[in-house]
Design a protein around this nucleic acid. Structure first.
Length: 699
RNA sequence: GCGCGGUUAGCUCAGUUGGUAGAGCGCGUCAUUGACGUUGACGAUGUCGGGGGUUCGAAUCCCUCACCGCGCACCA
């Protein structure tokens, strides 16, 4: 028996050595796997954002994906797990801008090329760091197939997709309302904004013969349309298109009556004026009636000359002054301080989103969403937990056209060209003079939405036929309406098949008290500190056991500690077995009692297999844990002590054989969950030569 | 406002097709140098959120209410 079994299990000394052995074996790459393997099992790693360190949520994802891959690899599949990294356009640019800010710099004083170069260096350094963290979590992914969202071939394919969609009429250039962040100077998609309910004073002003309500007096300078419901009898004396002269903020204006059903008769006075440039609903009304639209607030969030004396003032500063002016003019009817309304903020900097009209590229969602809905109906997509299907369906049924233009440098350039109001999509500059390149980049989701295709070599790479569609998508629950639909849509549109069948969604990892981790609360747990202290296997078990899909997990250090004890328990079980079975090997005949022990474990193993195949990994892990501790250690080993002390030579010999068999099977069953300690012990099991990671699954 | 989830032991949570309530941690008593400084044995604590229904039987299925959490939202 090896001397090291006389000491407690040393995870720190073991893990890097074992990982190196795995990597050297080449088995992470399915092309090198032993045996005759025909069926593929593929997982694409949700590419972590290459702009920071891994958090516990990543550790959970890596663990889940790794255990699925290891299980299938042992079952004899061509198991492929493709790692990657995401440049994470806007996210990374925000991180980098904060860094610049600390250094007293600003991106607005930099040449775009210079900024791009700096962010690239920053990202690549983070990416390398992150990959090592993924390794330390035991990830058995095929590094030779790793992809980065800014790899040349990825960029090219993403751009081709844009051109194809443009030619298919699925992408259009449009002047439409966008979510504008005045701090970051870019438009944002709806999922990049956060809506919060806030208390804002609600003002009612006199507007000619009407009373109109608003929470945003600063947008009202150009309001020259007054809108009411066509069926509102209170205002039946006014007709659509009629003009009236009213006294307003900066003097008299001529207002036009508009009748539109978008107005709620019950709300306020049932009359409103509209600001099409700075409101989605107003924009829609204006479009229906072909009304003028005028910008009131500039891209920096300051008032334009139309505001007269308020020109150049920021909204927050101008609002009370405008209210005061209207009051002095006798136009303020009332102020409701307790009014609550929903405002949108930039999800990164919390700046109030200013709706603005801007020329952007939009993806026409309706026909694509329909593809996704059909796939759900046909059960081509299966959600774990099942109820997430409803969330997915809701989003697909209510999909708004998707703005994919971003006014930032950090991203994949949009291959589009403009000349005299004409817009073209093309990888090359169109023929003729005067074409100007679109300076915008794609929304990150436009590239990551194509990730299952791009990582498997769409459209004609060597892996594409074998590994697309992939088998499982494992990711966070919050991505069910952000990332999943986009992958499904691109998969169906480009690849003609759903990109994956099973969708496993894990919940959030919270702190021990169940509170969301955040830097400001100071309760963030660094996974690598836990692996140093308790071992990666212990961390992995603590993330899996009792963690049902879709449910949030409370992460307590005690739990991790408990599984460190378990790793050591397994270590000592092995020590006992190795000490008492010198010279024996599994495979010889056993008596009836011992055969029953083998059968018992075979039954448990079949049960665990079923759990794993049905994504009940939390049960599978718990079952093997209890077998090893409560059955193997507490009962079988104790009873073996008696046999070794007082039994016949024949009984002793048979018991030795069976103990090796039980240990060997237990190690296999535990391997997907606790790969390091099981692999380390496996190397000392008599008769086993190859790595445990490629041993065949017990049933 | 709409939607989704949760409510089970002190804490964190399991409970897969309805069949006399479970785990880990914590707590209490005792034992133990043992394959295990990280061990073992025994033990206590639950009207399974409230109410109603279906059923021979409900933590589990249906209805309803309450509270907690999350997501979405163009009522100015």
């Amino acid at each position: 028996m090896d001397e090291k079994f006389k000491k407690p299990y040393d995870s720190v000394g073991t893990e890097p050595r074992v990982y190196e052995a795995w990597e050297k074996s080449g088995y992470f790459n399915p092309d090198n796997l032993p045996g005759d393997r025909t069926e593929a099992f593929t997982i694409v790693m949700p590419p972590p954002n290459a702009n920071g360190s891994l958090h516990v949520g990543h550790a959970l994802a890596i663990t889940m994906e790794d255990l699925m891959t290891r299980f299938k690899r042992m079952q004899g599949y061509k198991a492929l797990w493709i790692p990657g990294a995401d440049h994470a356009g806007f996210e990374t640019q925000v991180v980098y801008e904060k860094k610049l800010e600390k250094e007293g710099r600003s991106r607005f004083n930099m040449e775009p090329e210079e900024l791009y170069k700096e962010i690239l260096d920053f990202t690549l350094a983070n990416k390398a760091h992150m990959e090592n963290q993924v390794r330390s979590l035991g990830a058995s992914c095929d590094w030779s197939r790793e992809k980065f969202t800014l790899d040349t071939d990825v960029v090219e394919e993403v751009q081709k997709t844009f051109v194809k969609m443009f030619n298919d009429g699925l992408i259009y250039r449009g002047k439409r309302t966008v979510n504008w962040c005045s701090k970051h100077q870019t438009s944002l998609s709806d999922v990049e904004t956060e809506s919060t309910e806030e208390q804002t004073p609600f003002y009612t002003f006199k507007y000619g013969p009407f009373s109109i309500g608003t929470v945003r007096p600063e947008t009202k300078f150009g309001d020259k349309y007054v809108v009411m419901h066509p069926k509102d009898t209170r205002y039946s004396e006014y007709t659509h298109g009629q003009t009236i002269d009213v006294e307003w903020i900066n003097g008299p204006i001529t207002a036009t009556i508009i009748k539109d059903e978008a107005v709620e008769m019950e709300f306020g006075t049932g009359v409103m004026t509209i600001t099409p440039w700075h409101s989605q609903i107003d924009f829609e009304i204006a479009e229906r009636h072909n009304l003028d639209m005028e910008q009131i607030i500039d891209w920096r969030g300051k008032l334009l000359p139309i505001s007269g004396e308020f020109e150049g003032k920021k909204i927050a500063e101008a609002r009370p002054l405008i209210v005061e002016k209207l009051r002095e003019k006798g136009l303020l009817v009332s102020t409701d301080e307790g009014y609550k309304n929903v405002v949108k903020r930039c999800y990164k900097c919390n700046t109030l989103i200013e709706p603005q009209i801007k020329d952007q590229w939009f993806v026409k969602m309706a026909p694509l969403a329909k593809l996704a809905l059909t796939a759900v109906e046909k059960k081509d997509l299966v959600f774990y937990p099942a109820h997430e299907e409803k969330v997915f369906t809701y989003w697909m049924e209510n999909a708004l056209d998707w703005n994919i233009s971003r006014q930032i440098v950090w991203g994949i350039p949009i291959p589009a060209w403009f000349k005299d109001g004409e817009a073209r999509a093309s990888l090359e500059k169109p023929e003729g003079d005067g074409w100007e390149k679109d300076a915008d980049t794609f929304d990150t989701w436009f590239s990551s939405g194509q990730w299952p295709l791009l990582t498997t070599g769409y459209p004609d790479g060597k892996d594409y036929d074998t590994y697309y569609p992939t088998s499982v998508m494992e990711t966070g629950r919050d991505l069910v309406f952000k990332w999943i639909p986009r992958m499904v849509i691109f998969g169906l549109y480009l690849g003609k098949k759903v990109p994956f069948k099973d969708i496993y969604l894990h919940g959030l990892v919270n702190d021990a008290k169940g509170k969301k981790m955040s830097k400001s609360k100071g309760n963030v747990i660094n996974p690598l500190e836990l692996t140093e202290k308790y071992g990666t296997d212990a961390l992995r078990m603590s993330l899996i056991v009792g963690n049902t899909p879709g449910m949030d997990l409370a992460m307590s250090e005690d739990k991790v500690k408990g599984y460190k004890h378990f790793a050591n328990k397994l270590w000592n079980i092995s020590r006992f077995i190795f000490e008492n079975t010198e010279g024996s090997e599994a495979g010889a005949d056993v008596n009836e009692i011992d055969a029953k022990l083998v059968d018992e474990l075979a039954e448990i193993s079949a049960d665990i297999t079923k759990d794993l195949e049905s994504f009940r990994v939390y049960l599978a892990a718990d079952k093997i844990y209890h077998y090893v501790w409560d059955r193997l250690a507490a009962e079988i080993l104790e009873e073996s002590k008696v046999i070794f002390a007082t039994g016949s030579e024949e009984a002793k010999a048979m018991r030795k054989v069976v103990l090796i068999s039980l240990l060997s099977t237990s190690l296999k069953l535990l391997h997907p969950f606790m790969p390091f300690v099981t692999e380390e012990i496996w190397q000392h099991v008599p008769g086993e030569k190859d790595l445990l990671m490629v041993a065949s699954w017990p049933s």
